[in-house]
Design a binder for these strands. Structure first.
Lengths: 231, 231
DNA sequence: TCTAATTGTTACAGAATTGTTGCACGGATT
DNA sequence: AATCCGTGCAACAATTCTGTAACAATTAGA
């Protein structure tokens, strides 16, 4: 889930500053000091985006960008260039290099993060999942709504994610640990009993329509979302 | 059916490059070197979109955009402006002039194509439907007015664009980021919380008629325009 | 039945998110 | 120049959500 971002910047101070900013924003930064190191790193890991300084010792940033565009495996890799404000490089060469965005130095950290997210958003193919329905209970991700017989049911964010996961994976038992991974996310630490509380909250929300019986307890193991009668 | 795109750009090198890029992407490019030539071309062919350079000899790009907005026949024509990063144009005044998006030079061909398609996608339904109406709330894009039960509602430019977007995309959640892209324009950088402020202003304007409940909050996600009761 | 383990339920403090307001700034108008 | 208007932002208030602990209820097994 966490996007990996290759950061190619020769000045150590700036590199470290951006690196910590990226980490803080939930990205996985891969620092590199020059083009050679960048290419070495890319042989091992395939980043989701490249932050590339315009001025680099040895192979310049724009030259590296051209190389990446030439290689079929990195042709679609988004590139954001870091340039000195109003340096205004040759327009046509910028066009040809196929850079996705420019950020002029000095820049605000938040602007940089915003531009990264914008580029990732534009680049990523959108995977819209349609509404799910089970015995009249409808969950629509696009409107972010849970409906029973036409009337909307109010559920909290976590309950929504949990119900969405359950509706996509019915008739299967999940341990609390698995639910934490799939509903909360992998690298978060919360007590397993917290799952029980949210199960309770989900049941409470579904109870007025009788759908609470779909959320079943498997004693000694975990929980299951099922239309079959609980035995 | 290939979309026709009028390209107004004075620098021949850039014009030709974009022209070939457009042709390659399946569009039908109509090149023009200045505003006068652009207006001449438009008398013969009606393009689906205009790519307009900010800096033009004679009549400037933004001035041409204003003229197009004044003319009823071209009022709904999507406009994308090409601006140099260092020119730092006032995007707000551009937005008020009715520009749909900005692309800062230098830009990648991919980005340009993506933005063109994005603008075409989101302006397509608008131009065909004309005035929109939801439960007595009427928004008329051509006269730029909002009315409730005959009485006009005063909304600011941003609130108007937001309401127009919402009325064209009901029953769907949008994150603050998506709203910024669609209401403000893609590469405008403003704080996400600013969306909340304009949501507030829109609600305040709609409140005297009870329409404020159509603008719903989806906690943890964003906002939604819906006629269904929020619960 | 009795006991230990497991699960259900509730309350609550702190965190996170959203609502609301005032204000400075820039552009347009007078 | 004076004023108004729209905009974006920050600061504060209000609301909602979350995780945890504590206690009650239930289950499984001896």
């Amino acid at each position: 889930m966490a996007k990996t971002i290759l950061l190619v910047e020769d000045e150590a101070a700036i590199r470290e500053m951006i690196e910590s900013a990226l980490a803080h924003a939930g990205f996985n930064p891969l620092p590199a000091a020059d083009a050679a190191e960048a290419e070495r790193v890319m042989k091992q890991t395939r980043p989701d985006l490249i932050l590339l300084d315009w001025m680099l010792p040895g192979v310049s940033g724009i030259e590296l960008a051209r190389r990446l565009r030439r290689d079929i495996s990195t042709r679609e890799l988004p590139i954001i260039m870091l340039t000195a404000r109003c340096e205004e490089p040759d327009r046509v060469s910028g066009l040809e290099a196929g850079v996705d965005d420019y950020v002029g130095k000095p820049f605000s950290v938040r602007e940089l993060i915003a531009r990264i997210q914008a580029v990732l958003r534009r680049t990523a193919p959108r995977s819209e999942t349609g509404p799910m329905e089970i015995e009249g209970l409808i969950l629509d991700p696009s409107s972010h709504r849970v409906t029973a017989e036409g009337t909307p049911i109010k559920v909290g964010p976590t309950e929504f994610r949990m119900l969405r996961f359950f509706m996509g994976n019915r008739e299967r038992v999940f341990t609390r640990s698995q639910l934490l991974d799939n509903v909360w996310g992998d690298n978060v630490y919360v007590e397993e009993r917290t799952v029980d509380v949210h199960i309770r909250r989900l049941r409470k929300a579904l109870a007025p329509f009788g759908y609470d019986k779909l959320v079943q307890t498997v004693h000694g193991t975990g929980y299951r979302f099922s239309t079959q009668t609980d035995s």
